[in-house]
Design a protein around this nucleic acid. Structure first.
Length: 110
DNA sequence: CTGCTGACTGGTA
DNA sequence: GTACCAGCCAGCA
């Protein structure tokens, strides 16, 4: 089996790449998908340098349906989301739970 | 190795 | 609603 032991950043980008258009995932969701449910903050740092075109970093948002950041270009993030049918009101995603891709995962305290 | 940073999160005031 | 705090963790100097 291949590459479960890649770098964290690599798995994060891989997870983000799997987010379908019209859907969003929180930093926490991506962290969990990468195997570290508590590494949301580290995910944010990785997204900070996300420039690859095949990585839809604009679909990664903060918890509660808030926009999160986008290298100081929130307007662009808003536009990209809107182009995919995701409406943004202020800094909040409309129909956030419905548009969420990775559903919340319960962990037994660890 | 140590220490700081920050596109985070949940809690409290 | 906003503001601040502590816990969290990968990456980097």
């Amino acid at each position: 089996m291949g590459r479960e032991n890649q770098g964290f950043a690599r798995r994060v980008l891989s997870a983000v790449r799997r987010i379908p258009a019209g859907r969003v995932a929180t930093y926490g969701d991506v962290a969990a998908a990468a195997g570290k449910p508590r590494a949301a903050r580290a995910v944010g740092n990785i997204m900070r340098g996300c420039t690859a075109r095949d990585v839809p970093c604009h679909r990664v948002i903060a918890a509660g349906g808030r926009l999160g950041g986008y290298g100081g270009r929130l307007e662009m993030k808003r536009g990209l989301l809107r182009a995919e049918g995701i409406l943004v009101f202020g800094d909040k995603i409309r129909e956030f739970p419905a548009r969420r891709w990775l559903k919340p995962v319960k962990y037994s305290g660890k």
